[in-house]
Amino acid sequence: MISHLIPRVLSKLLIPLIMLFALYVQFHGDYGPGGGFQAGVIFGAGIILYSLLFGLDQAKEVFPPRVLEIFVAGGVLLYGGVGIAAIFAGGNFLDYDVLAHDPHHGQHLGILLVELGVGITVAAVMATIFFQFAGRGRTDD
């Protein structure tokens, strides 16, 4: 594999910032533009950039596909879990009002968790789909 020295060094600077920005978009979605989906895509793009520059094998060691599979399902389950939790707290499915002692806090908590679920699923899905595409046609698959 050709060693792309300058892109590699630059991406080492950029990838942590991209992932930090993804977390900012994730948890600042209540106040500014963005939310779980955008954050997940940005985080996934960070993973993809890493695997483009450092090779698929190393990327699979850093982000193991088995763990990503768990995150793919885990995000959806977190979203659904918040809905079920609302039922157990005495409300309707995905009715966040009952999640905390007053409706506003409940809404904040519910939106935060739900967006986190979306973000986890989307980031893991983007990375998994890319890994599937990039790993296609290799001898070890």
Binding site: G29, D30, Y31, G32, P33, G35, G36, F37, V72, A73, G75, V76, Y79, G80, G83, L94, Y96, H104, Q107, H108, G110, I111, V114, E115, G117, V118, T121, V122, V125
Partner: peptide
């Protein structure tokens, strides 16, 4: 809702079912 970003409020709370569906679509 008490959330400043109205888009987030609509997506995650008022239309929580829709977003739940979208997440399952991605899954």
């Amino acid at each position: 809702i008490g959330v400043p970003n109205m888009v987030t409020a609509v997506l995650a709370s008022y239309r929580g079912y829709d977003t739940w569906g979208e997440t399952t679509v991605i899954f």
